[in-house]
Amino acid sequence: MSRIHPTAVIDSSAELDSSVEVGPYSIIGPNVTIGAGTKVGPHVVIDGHTSIGRDNTFFQFGSIGAAPQDKKYAGEPTRLEIGNGNTIREFVTLNLGTSQDVGVTRLGDNNWIMAYVHVAHDCQIGSQTVIANNATLAGHVHVGDCVLLGGFTTIHQFCRIGPHAMTAFTAAVSQDVPPFVTAAGNRAVPAGINSEGLRRRGFSDDQVMSIKRAYRLIYRSGLSLGDATAALAAEELKSPDSAEYIRMLREFISTSQRGIIR
């Protein structure tokens, strides 16, 4: 218990690994579990039915697992689940899920969540994302792996951001952003692919070029979205080394409920 500051308030029902550190004046509620190696800074509140994995770092003044900002919420035992190796910076808010969705807000592994980010109820965030300062995710937003959300990005409820996508500073996203695509502006429009991010993650030059060709089919060919989707299926056969990425684009577009940014 020497890792727990004497001013921290921890409910006796909370389950903390013996290696967890808790800073001054932090508060941890009764339905919280925290895994090995996690560090909770000063003045952090962790509440609700919240499970936190290993080796996470919470900086000061975070609000983790609070009730969702949804008038329909009536105290149901919904959850917040946080994986391993995440960095949660100052003044971040991560809310519980609601019974209007799957009932769980999720954050995967090795994410870098910068100051003042808000993640609303029922959001599903993958792994290895970077969410920059003051980004705001409304309820039910899905964010894929390896996404970068620029500072002050705002995302409308129920939108999806595909893996390896990127949003520019102050992007206002009201429709789905396909995988690999960069979104910019208010309202956000496509602005090419996240080619530099792909190269940093080990994509070959040929794979990046194949994804660029797929992007042109969707956005520069003049084809209808249905015809572009069919053309993507043909492109998969021509580019076996990149087929899984082209398929990812095609399937994302085909399953979009809000429509993609255009």
Score class of each variant (00 low, 15 high):
Gly126Arg: 03
Val189Thr: 15
Phe91Asn: 08
Ser224Ala: 06
Asn134Pro: 06
Glu235Phe: 13
Ala183Asn: 04
Ala172Ile: 10
Asn31His: 11
Ala36Leu: 13
Ile155Glu: 01
Asn133Ser: 12
Pro24Thr: 13
Ser204Leu: 09
Ile125Thr: 00
Tyr215Gly: 03
Ser204Pro: 13
Thr57Ser: 15
Glu15Cys: 11
Ala183Glu: 01
Ala172Asn: 14
Ile28Pro: 14
Tyr219Met: 07
Val32Trp: 04
Glu244Trp: 11
Ser254Val: 15
Gln175Phe: 15
Gly108Lys: 02
Gly226Arg: 14
Thr93Ile: 02
Thr98Gly: 04
Asn56Gly: 06
Ala171Gly: 06
Pro179Glu: 07
Arg216Cys: 12
Ala8Met: 03
Asp17Asn: 11
Ile46Met: 07
Pro240Asn: 13
Asp145Pro: 13
Ser239Arg: 08
Gln69Ile: 13
Ile34Cys: 03
His164Ile: 08
Tyr73Cys: 00
Ile28His: 04
Arg187His: 12
Pro68Phe: 07
Ile34Val: 12
Val44Gly: 04
Glu251Ile: 12
Ser254Thr: 09
Gly197Trp: 04
Ser18Thr: 13
Arg201Gly: 13
Tyr245Thr: 10
Cys159Trp: 05
Leu80Gly: 06
Arg262Ala: 10
Ile82Thr: 09
Val102Trp: 08
His43Ile: 03
Glu244Ala: 15
Ile113Lys: 08
Leu237Pro: 00
Ser63Trp: 03
Leu217Ala: 11
Arg79Glu: 14
Phe91Asp: 00
Val173Arg: 12
Gln69Trp: 12
Asp47Cys: 12
Ala168Cys: 03
Asn86Met: 07
Leu198Trp: 05
Phe58Tyr: 01
Asp109Leu: 10
His156Ile: 01
Val208Met: 01
Arg79Thr: 13
Pro68Asp: 11
Val44Lys: 01
Ser99Phe: 05
Arg89Leu: 01
Met166Thr: 04
Phe59Lys: 09
Lys71Asn: 04
Val143Gln: 05
Gly48Lys: 00
Gln60Tyr: 09
Pro240Gly: 14
Phe252His: 10
Arg160Asp: 00
Tyr245Ile: 11
Thr129Met: 15
Ile64Gly: 09
Phe58Val: 02
Asp176Tyr: 04
Asp227Ala: 15
Val177Ala: 10
Ala171Ser: 07
Gln128Leu: 13
Asp205Gln: 14
Ile113Glu: 09
Ala233Tyr: 11
Asn186Ile: 11
Pro6Lys: 14
Leu94His: 01
Tyr219Asp: 07
Phe203Arg: 01
Ala243Phe: 02
Ile82Ala: 03
Ser254Gly: 15
Ile253Arg: 01
Ala135Val: 03
Ile260Met: 08
Thr105Val: 11
Phe61Asp: 15
Ile113Ala: 07
Val143Thr: 02
Asn31Arg: 14
Ile28Met: 06
Ala168Tyr: 00
His140Thr: 10
Ser99Lys: 10
Glu76Ile: 05
Leu96Gly: 10
Leu249Lys: 02
Met114Thr: 06
Arg187Asp: 11
His118Thr: 00
Asn194Leu: 02
Glu81Cys: 13
Met209Val: 08
Gln207Thr: 05
Glu251Arg: 14
Ile88Ala: 03
Asp206Thr: 06
Ile253Leu: 13
Lys72Cys: 00
Phe252Cys: 05
Leu80Tyr: 05
Glu244Gly: 08
Ile64Phe: 00
Ile52Met: 14
Gly53Glu: 04
Pro179Ile: 13
Leu198Ser: 00
Ser13Phe: 13
Tyr219Cys: 06
Lys238Met: 07
Gln100Ala: 14
Thr154Lys: 15
Leu96Ser: 06
Gly83Asp: 05
Ala184Val: 12
Phe158Thr: 03
Val9Asp: 10
Pro24Ala: 14
